[in-house]
Amino acid sequence: MADKNRNAKTRTGDLSRHDWLVAAVSALAEGGVEAVKVERLAKTLGVSKGSFYWHFKDHAQLLAAILDFWAADFTQQLIDNAAGLATPKERLRHLARQALTKTIFGIDSARAEAAMQAWAATDPHVGMRLCAVDAARVGYLEKELLENGLEPAKAQAGAKTLYLALLGLYIARGYNQHLADDQVYMALVDMVLE
Rank of each mutant, 00 (worst) to 15 (best):
R111V: 08
W54C: 12
K89C: 12
K143C: 03
V133F: 10
A42F: 02
H55T: 14
A23R: 00
H178L: 14
Q77P: 01
Y53N: 11
Q117M: 14
L15V: 03
L162M: 12
A155T: 06
D19N: 06
A135L: 04
H125P: 12
A157N: 10
T10L: 08
R91P: 04
G149I: 04
T103D: 09
H178I: 13
R93W: 01
V25C: 04
A27S: 05
V184E: 07
K4Y: 07
A172Q: 11
L141E: 00
F52G: 04
G174W: 06
H59K: 11
T12W: 06
K102L: 14
A27I: 00
R6F: 01
V126C: 09
G158E: 01
P124A: 15
R40E: 02
F56R: 14
R40N: 02
A155F: 03
T12C: 12
P124Y: 13
L85E: 09
L28P: 00
A64K: 08
F105T: 00
A114H: 12
E144H: 03
E90H: 10
K4W: 03
V138E: 06
K49M: 06
K49W: 01
E151W: 02
P88Y: 07
K154T: 08
H55C: 13
D134H: 09
L130F: 15
T161E: 05
